[in-house]
Nucleic acid binder design. Structure first.
Lengths: 250, 250
DNA sequence: CCGGTCATTATGTCCGGACAACGGGAAAAG
DNA sequence: CTTTTCCCGTTGTCCGGACATAATGACCGG
């Protein structure tokens, strides 16, 4: 068996995934603002069973894009109710990241680095000796010069070949990773904490040392449960709200 | 049509819900620590179809209680990987709250109160004039005298009759509401923010004024989308981590 | 002892069908 | 005109079946 970094996706995703992607694009383009098609219509239009349609719609619902009511039908959720997509339960990471409200981030490479001393319970068996591949960047909303986030991203050593091919200016390292290496997210754990700003963070975010900062640490695992990415974000407490919603699925 | 506050659940929940509750109880009791039954076994044992079994397991998986792998089978997640149930995606709220690590909270009634001035985007059409029914309490872990949370809970005016029957010492107002009035959670939105401690919050949590505090504001909507509860929690930044995990469902 | 092959078994995907529960509007009753 | 009743369309629940795909261990050949 040859061991090589997989650089292309081999099998195509299941049909409900494709359908979910198709519908997500249309929803975000405003196609169904007036009226969302019924399950039966989607079955006929895409020539799939109701199971497939419902499985796709279940995802869009979990993402907060649509609302469904028995007897009434399916409607597109107003953008206000969607929360910040940047920090939303993740289903199709690549596409989801794109509708984060016009914020931009460009990363710079940090090369191989030691993981910062993180008191994260999710880390588990990660060897402290390993050096991960780091990136860092400031995220800003279009008009505002004050950054909304200082983010550091670390990828597992085994992804070094893929990381070399990343386009740092696009801001969606994630989507690229999915495209380039076919890495799928299976589970994400995150720790959220309110901490005082360190000197450096305060400088970068335009705060005073000691001011409240929201720190979000995320551990991304692939479908086999292997940790492949860690991200650490610092947000200014005075102008950042981590907004999310949870749909109880039924 | 007579208008009356529903005080009993009339219809019984769907089968997959019952099965999920049954299995959840067993998992939390440690029944399946060694080996979790297969779908086929559950089908036979409970005399339901595979659809029903999978729908139940899907919920337990979303709660982080079990992990499923194609080809391998289903296993119970170690408690460490479950995150803090208190702050977890909510499926069966009543039962879930009970396995929050031994923390306790006893509420005191605030009576009818105005909603505090919350800059929450999710509020929507709520009339500021209405008076909601408020409760407040401090949450502590068993051994530690320093509270982990100062929580205020507000229920919609229409639930006044139900609120009068609540047992404030049990700490699971939610489960009681579900039992008493059959109120089911359909959607939860939450805002998380890092803010400086006010004088009062600092006093209650044992901090200094201005210290970082994690504030979590939740809006609970029922299945019809009506807002029926708002909770505001303040957590000390130096000893509280909001830990959660997200399973990508597939 | 190592490595590859294969059957077994588990979950994942997908289908078709059936009925229930709910919402909303139209029709009927007052 | 108001209220109630009824019908119909939509989503929710549940069933049985079929095949695909992944993990595992047993088997076998080197």
């Amino acid at each position: 068996m040859t061991e090589s970094v997989t650089l292309v996706k081999d099998r195509e995703p299941p049909r409900y995934m494709q359908l979910a992607g198709e519908l997500r694009r249309k929803v975000l383009s405003g196609n169904f603002a007036a009226e969302f098609p019924t399950e039966a219509e989607l079955c006929a239009q895409y020539n799939v069973s109701r199971f497939t349609v419902r499985e796709a719609l279940r995802r869009l619902q979990a993402e907060g894009l649509i609302a469904r009511r028995r007897g009434s039908g399916t409607t597109v959720q107003p953008a206000a109710a969607r929360g910040n997509a940047l920090h939303q339960p993740i289903s199709n990471v690549g596409e989801l990241l794109q509708y984060a409200l016009g914020s931009r981030i460009a990363y710079q490479s940090l090369g191989r680095v030691d993981l910062p001393g993180l008191a994260v319970s999710h880390l588990g068996e990660t060897k402290a000796a390993e050096q991960w591949i780091g990136f860092s960047g400031l995220r800003r909303v279009d008009g505002d010069p004050r950054p909304l986030a200082m983010t550091e991203v670390f990828f597992a050593p085994r992804l070094e070949a893929v990381c070399a091919a990343l386009d740092l200016s696009s801001g969606t390292l994630f989507a690229q990773l999915d495209d380039l290496a076919g890495i799928n997210v299976g589970k994400v754990t995150q720790d959220i904490q309110a901490i005082p700003a360190s000197t450096e963070v305060a400088r970068l975010l335009g705060l005073r040392r000691g001011n409240p900062v929201l720190r979000v640490i995320r551990c991304y695992h692939d479908l086999e449960g292997r940790l492949f990415e860690i991200s650490v974000s610092h947000h200014p407490g005075d102008r950042f709200v981590y907004s999310m919603h949870i749909d109880v699925e039924d």
